[in-house]
Design a protein around this nucleic acid. Structure first.
Length: 772
RNA sequence: GCGGAUAUGGCGAAAUAGGCAGACGCAGCAGACUCAAAAUCUGCCGAUGGUGACAUCGUAAGGGUUCGAGUCCCUUUAUCCGCACCA
């Protein structure tokens, strides 16, 4: 029984620009790796498909004035043609397409299951909004306050949304990272994004009312130093707590904050704010704390309200300075109270804190929450930065959300047997900008009957984000045509989870976090029996040209098509590897491929004459060394040095060929198998020419024998005080004394007049004579 | 601001465990073959000085550990990436 290996590329969205040599890099890496595993006796699943729904595809279609279905089909055709040029071992019979109703039936099915389990819910709230794409965005899709897709500055808009409770999985998403064979960088980015912090929730009573303000703080030890409170402008209590006199000013501030873009809110260093006119009570010392609002407090982190301790928080300090609020230090370095020039944020000794005075602040961090808990005014808690996933898009080109709104029964899921809810054809698919998707305009589609009561009802008109289809696609490849279940138990056990996942770093938090979330949910409902989808992850570096990422707008795109025509697929494959360490960015140089092309020709020359019968000792040794080098470099994924290793050994073998006429067939067969993962075409040709009838990928990866690699003699360097002064030839089993004698003799005239202080011999490597 | 990564010839880079820095390739120079070109082959190819064998310097900068440092430690700088008013 062969073992199974699932090697997956992040599937592309088929853009109109086609593939460039940067895309090739990841695909070549994964294919070389797949073929290498084949030669180790594995069954390989190495599939390819199309992430074809979503904004880029739709924006492209709109620009081309073509229906997205048509332009997408056209782009896929072009992509497929180009991908075939790579000559990868893709399982084309397992191809998937996220826009195929047979596929998105299951995308919708998963959503329904989440809905059933209370993980998908509807909510109207201010969310990130791209005014150019005219749709809501997930937090993960906003970079530097801009739309990740088009770069337009995102605004906030109050829209009815479908949300997914990814926050319910925050702890598991964090915990399971530790077991993954992923780049540390990606793990760190994910754990930072999840952003767990420990602290306390504390209730503050509002003077003269029965209202309470709940805050989250990571510094309960500073509670005695709290001198005011700040609410986010969006906080629900703002209008209630504002006094009559202050209300007009408060309302103006709230309105201004709502129209401010995320970028402005982020880059404005100067603190702004308005006093509400009312006061809260510090539960520990009964001090009156004026309540303010300010946009430096975020509505969607913690409770949207904070207790402010200007003495020990830089932001609160700046706010207090600006609005002349008291600054009371409660922690000091040495127990003495001094006036602060700036916030003191380190740990220290408690002061001004009644019975906690003299305690270390680290200890008070635990003791104060205990005290609060005893008196029912607070509790220890953890908090996450991760927020629920804004899942609906007000666009046409996506999976319809399988939900029906009934005036009687409320929100009802489409019955499973009615899936898929097919995306209807539509005359105008351009975004409306009203907060509704173009689907809302198709009355005959929108109007339907309620599956529960049979009465008139309306379909949900929002669509899913592009991430919906890509969050689970790796589960579908083993059985893309299974119409009974998402994946059969048998196929799941055979192939999943994915053994090796290759793709760009740009999905470090987006796709990879979502896919992990989906997998955990599917585990919870018994669809899969593993909790992490991708056992090993490899991020390939970018290919740059003129120092920049290839893009049509920069005009620095290199197409693989002509290069394949001119040099052949193998030369381009090898150059993609040779260009630099796979995980680092590398600069493209058109001339570089010439060298690889020359190498391949040289390599083939080794096979021109096969008269040599026996493997000579010299060739045998070289051959084992080569197997060793290539194998260890492969294993460590150092594919650029695999190529340079091939070049070196080819040069050496050509020299030997020159002297003895030809290289023996045993060696030549070994060489061919070693080359096969990198250059399958060339290797297959040579294999046939060597008279082999079996499939080269059915062969076994050559094994090295350390004994046969051993050298008997070596030339080593002789140094005087660390400086190279001569060289000697030694037998490796020679004893240290005779080597040292030999070494001293070799450099004796340089030692004249010097006194030898120390003699060092490192076995087989170096002699160092320390002399003065 | 916080966190991470990187820094080696004209260029892409290599260097097990601290042991000849620059393998391999690109570009360049010289030569062979050729009427010529292409292709191919041979040699040179870090800097400075010297006709030369050779000498000195050299892995972002400065210090340290060591017989010996691109590699380990400390400080600094530059570039790239991520996060960014996260209480």
């Amino acid at each position: 029984m062969k073992k199974n290996y699932y090697c997956l590329d992040m599937f592309p969205y088929p853009s109109g620009n086609g593939l460039h040599v940067g895309h090739w890099r990841g695909y070549v890496l994964s294919d070389v790796w797949s073929r290498y595993q084949m030669l180790h006796g594995y069954n390989i699943l190495h599939p390819m498909g199309w992430d074809a729904f979503g904004l880029p595809a739709e924006n492209y279609a709109i620009a081309q004035k073509k229906h997205p279905a048509i332009s997408t089909a056209h782009n896929i055709e072009n992509f497929k043609r180009q991908l075939k040029e790579i000559n990868a071992v893709y399982d084309w019979d397992k191809e998937i397409n996220t826009t195929d109703p047979k596929y998105y039936k299951w995308t919708q099915w998963i959503f329904l299951k989440m809905f059933e389990h209370g993980l998908a819910y509807e909510k109207e709230m201010p969310i990130n909004w791209c005014p150019s794409c005219k749709t809501g965005l997930a937090n993960e899709e906003v970079k530097d306050g801009q739309c990740d897709r088009c770069g337009t500055v995102a605004t906030k808009k109050n829209v009815r949304q479908w949300m997914l409770k990814i926050t319910e999985y925050a702890q598991r998403l964090l915990d399971d990272l530790s077991g993954l064979d992923w780049p540390e960088k990606v793990k760190k980015m994910q754990s930072d994004w999840i952003g767990k912090s420990f602290g306390a929730e504390i209730d503050f009573e509002v003077e003269g009312t029965d209202k309470k303000i709940k805050v989250f703080t990571t510094r309960p030890d500073t509670l005695y130093g709290s001198t005011f409170m700040v609410l986010a402008p969006e906080h629900e209590l703002v209008s209630e707590l504002a006094t009559k006199e202050q209300l007009p000013e408060v309302e103006k501030y709230v309105f201004d904050a709502s129209t401010k873009s995320a970028v402005n809110r982020m880059t404005e260093k100067d603190k702004t704010g308005v006093f509400l006119g009312s006061y809260a009570i510090n539960p520990l010392n009964n001090e009156k704390l004026p309540i303010w609002i300010s946009d430096y407090v975020l509505s969607d982190y913690g409770t949207g309200a904070i207790m402010c301790v200007p003495a020990h928080d830089e932001r609160d300090f700046a706010f207090a300075k600006k609005f002349n609020l008291p600054i009371v230090p409660v922690i000091s370095k040495d127990g003495n109270v001094v006036e602060l020039e700036e916030a003191f944020t380190e740990e220290g000794i408690m002061v001004n804190s009644q019975s906690f005075n003299g305690m270390k602040s680290a200890e008070a961090k635990l003791k104060i929450p205990d005290y609060l808990e005893e008196h029912g005014i607070g509790k220890k808690t953890v908090n996450y930065k991760l927020r629920d996933w804004v899942f609906s898009r007000q666009r046409y080109w996506g999976e319809p959300i399988p939900i029906i709104h009934c005036s009687k029964c409320g929100i009802v899921g489409v019955p499973e047997e009615e899936l898929p809810v097919e995306l209807p054809d539509v005359t105008s698919y351009e975004p409306t900008g009203t907060g509704e998707s173009p689907l809302a305009a198709i009355d005959e589609w929108v109007n339907t009957t309620c599956p529960k009561c049979g009465g008139p009802a309306k379909r949900e008109t929002n669509t899913m984000p592009q991430w919906a289809g890509s969050s689970w696609y790796f589960l579908r490849y083993p059985n893309p045509n299974n119409d009974k279940e998402l994946i059969s138990k048998e196929d799941m056990k055979k192939w999943l989870p994915v053994d090796m996942y290759v793709g760009g770093i740009e999905h470090a938090v987006l796709h990879l976090l979502y896919a992990r979330f989906y997998t955990k949910f599917l585990y919870d409902i018994g669809v899969v029996d593993f909790v992490e989808p991708f056992t090993r992850l490899f991020n390939q570096g970018m290919v740059t040209k003129n120092g920049a990422k290839m893009s049509k707008s920069k005009g620095n795109v290199v197409s693989p098509d002509e290069l394949v025509k001119k040099y052949g697929c193998d030369a381009l494959r090898i150059y993609e590897l040779f260009i630099g360490p796979p995980e680092l960015d590398s600069e493209w140089d058109d001339r570089g491929i010439e060298g690889v092309h020359r190498f391949l020709n040289k390599f083939k020359r080794l096979f021109e004459n096969t008269n040599q019968k026996a493997q000579t000792k010299e060739v045998e040794k070289l051959c084992h060394k080569m197997i060793y080098d290539i194998t260890t470099r492969m294993e460590s994924f150092s594919l650029n040095t695999v190529v340079s290793g091939f070049m070196e050994y080819t040069n050496k073998l050509l020299d030997i060929q020159k002297s003895i006429g030809s290289i023996d067939k045993t060696t030549l067969k070994t060489l061919t198998i070693l080359l096969a993962p990198l250059a399958p075409d060339t290797a297959k040709d040579i294999w046939v020419n060597l008279g082999q009838t079996s499939d080269i990928f059915e062969q076994e990866w050559p094994k090295y024998d350390l004994e046969k690699m051993k050298d008997d003699t070596a030339e080593i360097v002789v140094q005087i005080s660390g400086k190279v002064s001569g060289k000697i030839n030694i037998n490796l089993d020679e004893d240290e004394k005779s080597i040292l004698d030999k070494a001293k003799k070799a450099i004796e005239n340089k030692l004249l007049g010097k006194k030898i202080l120390k003699e060092i011999y490192v076995k087989g490597r170096i002699v160092n004579i320390v002399a003065k």
